[in-house]
Every structure is written in C-alpha cells, then in structure tokens.
Design a protein around this nucleic acid. Structure first.
Lengths: 220, 220
DNA sequence: ATTTATTCAATTGTTTACTTTAGAAAAGAC
DNA sequence: GTCTTTTCTAAAGTAAACAATTGAATAAAT
C-alpha cells in the first residue's frame, strides 16, 4: 500500500482542530500566524490555509487584517446547533434505516461496548467523543447521502467542543448510556419512527444538560 | 464612511464564484492556479486561498497535489441538496414567522414584483436568482438563527448553479411565480403550517423540474 | 483637557523564488 | 511486444522576503 503524503496544511488543520476541541486553545484567544508557524515548524502559508479551513468548519473566525481566533462557546450557539443536529441527523437516520446492513448494526453494538467502558479511563473525553461519533456514523451508514453526512460531521465537530467540555467538568452526559442502548434496539428492530424520536430526544437531552451546565458556569 | 479594503483573496473568491455559478467555468474542468493567477493579475496564494474557500462552499473540489475543479452537477446531488433545503428552510421559515415584522413582509412583496418583471430582461438568470435569494432571506429574517441562515445561504449557492442553468435553458421554474405569491400570502396571514408546507412544496417542485431537465439533457 | 493628526510597531496580506509530488514519456528488461 | 524501471516535466506545496493595514502611542491643535 502506498504511503499517503499529507500536506503540511492538512497536518496543521488536524493539530489545531484537536487543540480547539480539547480546549488547549481557548475561545476568543487570538491565533497569531507567526507564533503558530514557529511552534509547528512550518511557514505562515500552511497556517493561514489551515485557519481558513477551520473557519469553514465553524471552529475559527477569521477577520481580514485582524486575525483569527477560536469561536466562542455560548448558550444560544448550543441551542441552534443541537436543534439543527436533531433535525438533520433524524432525517439521516430515517434514510439509513431503510437500507442499513446487519453488519453495520453489529459494528455499532461493538462500539457501544467500548463507549461504556471508556468513561472511567485516561483521556476519557477524547476517546468517548471519538467513539460517540463512530457509533452515530455507523447508524447513518445506510443513508447514501454524502452531502448530508458530511454536513452532520461538520456540525458534530462543533458540538464536540461542548460535549468534551461537559464530559470533562461534569463527568458526562448522564443519560447517554441508556439512550444509546435504546436507540440501537429500535434500529435493530428497524422501527424508524421510534428510532428517530429517540435520537432526537437524545440530542436534545444533551443540549439541555450542556445548557444547564453553561448557564451555571456563567453565573460563577 | 470608511472605505472597505477587500483582500485579493476575497475578490478572487467573488470572481470565481460568479464564474462557476453562471457556467463560465464548466464543471470538472481543472482550475490551474498559475493560469487563474495570471488572468486575475494576482499571485498564486490568493488563488489557492480562494479555491479553499470555494471548496468549503461546495462549489469546488480540491485534491492535494492534483488540483481543483468545479464540482460536477448531477441528479443525485440535486436530490439530496434540494431535500436538505426543504427541511432546513422549512424549519427556518417556521421560526421566522413567530417574530417577523410587517416591514419585512412588505419588503418581500416589493421584491416579488421585481422578480416577476426580471424574467424577460437581459441577464435574466443572474438577476432572477439574486432576487429569489433576497425574497427567501427576507422571509427568514425573523428567525434569529444565524448559523442556520448561513448554512441555508451556502446550500443556496449550490442550488443556484442548477437554478440558473435551468433558467437559461428552459426559461425558468414554471410554477415559481404563483408559488411565491401563495407563500407570501400564507406568511402575511402568519399561517405557519401552510406557509411551511407551501415552501417545501415549492423547493421540491423546483427539484423535480431540474431533475427532469437534467435527465433529459443526459440522454442527448 | 479634549479632540484631532501623526508616527510607529505589530501583524496580516501578497509576491517571488524554491522544493516536492504526481503522472506521463522514455528507456530498459524479459 | 509487454511489463517494469527510470527520467523528466508540469503543477502543486512551501518558505522567505516584501508590502499594506490596523490600532495604539505620541504629538499637535483648539
């Protein structure tokens, strides 16, 4: 198999994205091109291109002549983001369940086992959110809607920031475990209506927990 | 008022976007950085950055070391795109009608008049699609959902390519005129359910017309 | 003392020049 | 003659140098 040559831009995107997701780069803090370039041992060009891509993903804002910074996290953003996700992912799940394979469902079940056992471990936030994405993507694998799927992944990268924050500070979305199990059961039964309803409820519940956490945090 | 300094990248984005939307740049045709740079009298860096932004908008695909090209237009793409639009714009309209002002509705009515009269004129495709966007955005102005609104605008830039193509070759979406009028009437009556249903029907009708046109075109 | 110009430094935007990659053409092996 | 290997070229990726913009600090004006 051929070695895949990643461009410096792609590497910088991945590094910066991870730093934003895990909170190492804090929201609002200016991202100086020269500083990042030196830190990562590249020139400013790949850094600029990476920042541009991250802006398209919604993780960064880029103002001409002013510079870039990680987008700020707030309650209104959560509201809109998670409602969008509930709507679009609901649609995607419905389309997927029409054609999903038993293999995909078995794989989802496997991921669920790892997901539950990830909570106590080292680096829980990172691995949990990664497995969580895998689980959901697995359930959507039958949809055959590439644009929608890629949109969902972009939205999830934004949601991920809140989910990791919440995981880190509050120990996790309390209802996620049982909700995932129930969701999978409805999917295995190909019960589209209940599966979609459960998924939307799952997303909106996490929205509520995160909003509650955020407003509590803002108060102090 | 201060003079707004647009960066070269921004200018290149606008020029290339317009060329893609109006078909001057044909789908699949490779976009050579050096050639574009010379044509627009800039260096390759702003061209690269512009291509990256257009990729984020879905108008261009960018493959490392291979180069960029305008994304290809096809029936499956239309299907997914217009269904996404129907769902998201429906949601946006519902949210908007809760708070929309009479001023916004009056403005929408004004735009509708211009829209109808634009069809016969010179450059009909460009002005029609621009006014069409304005009309829809006007109806969504009460939503207070900035992320959703910006997503809708991105999706519409993609849809615009098909709409302009159809406008140019087939003379326009046949039912658009009366549908717009009916939609506006429901909005003025603040009849959310009927307005949303009409909007979705309007979007899905244009999907059908465009798909019919595309498959007919592929045959010949 | 407050407001308006002016200078200056930090940072971004852009160009030019250099390096690397991918894919086609040419050369060699069988 | 077909298949592998090598060479070469066009294009993309990257770096380093240069130019332009912003906003703050300073100076001037009323």
């Amino acid at each position: 198999m051929a070695i895949e040559h990643k461009t410096r831009t792609q590497l910088v995107v991945e590094i910066l994205r991870e730093k934003i997701l895990n909170g190492e780069i804090v929201a609002g803090q200016p991202l100086r091109q020269a500083a990042l370039a030196e830190e990562l041992s590249v020139s400013r060009i790949p850094v600029r291109e990476a920042l541009l891509q991250l802006e398209a993903e919604g993780l960064v804002t880029f103002e001409p002549h002013k510079g870039a910074s990680a987008t700020v996290l707030n309650a209104e953003h959560v509201d809109e983001l998670f409602e969008l996700r509930a709507m679009i992912e609901g649609d995607l799940l419905a389309a997927s369940l029409e054609h999903i394979t038993n293999d995909a469902l078995a794989q989802a079940a496997d991921i669920l086992v790892n997901l539950d056992s990830a909570l106590g471990k080292e680096n829980a936030a990172n691995t949990w959110s990664e497995l969580n994405s895998e689980f959901h993507n697995c359930l959507y694998s039958g949809a055959n809607k590439p644009q929608t799927a890629s949109l969902v992944n972009t939205l999830n990268k934004n949601a991920d920031r809140y989910i990791r924050m919440h995981l880190l500070w509050a120990g996790g979305i309390s209802k996620a475990g049982p909700e995932h199990a129930e969701l999978l059961a409805f999917c295995q039964a190909r019960d589209i209506n209940n599966a979609v309803a459960k998924l939307k409820q799952h997303i909106l519940n996490s929205r509520d927990e995160i909003k509650a956490f955020l407003s509590q945090r803002e108060a102090s």
